[in-house]
């Protein structure tokens, strides 16, 4: 799914650093990990998850907006994608 349709962030699907650039530690992020690429694509197309994606970091992992987590979990569960929640 082309997430650019929903957000114009320059780092949505690109790296935040560059070749020879610094290491970056992204603190306090909320990360959604899917069992497969197909599950992620399915969830993106079937639920409002696409609006909450902050970054896509691999075919199966996205960073999501931490401010929307309660609503997102509720919506995903309603659509049959109840996530396991792991709190660090």
């Amino acid at each position: 799914m082309d997430l650019k349709k929903f957000n114009s962030s320059p780092t949505l699907e690109e790296a935040a650093t560059w070749e020879g650039g610094p290491l970056i530690v992204h603190q306090n992020v909320t990360l959604l990990e899917c069992a497969s690429e197909a599950v992620l694509e399915e969830a993106l197309s079937a639920t409002p998850l696409k609006y909450a994606v902050v970054r896509r970091i691999s075919p199966t992992v996205v960073l999501v907006d931490h401010g929307q987590v309660p609503e997102l979990v509720k919506t995903l569960s309603k659509k049959g994608y109840e996530p396991r929640i792991v709190r660090s």
Binding site: G20, V29, T30, L32, L63, H66
Partner: peptide, 23 residues
């Protein structure tokens, strides 16, 4: 359990990003 583990949401976690895979 497998069905439940399709999506895992890690809250308040930390992520390291490197400029390239070799690093």
């Amino acid at each position: 359990s497998t069905e439940f583990d399709r999506l895992i949401l890690h809250e308040n976690t930390h992520l390291l990003e490197t400029p390239d895979a070799a690093t």
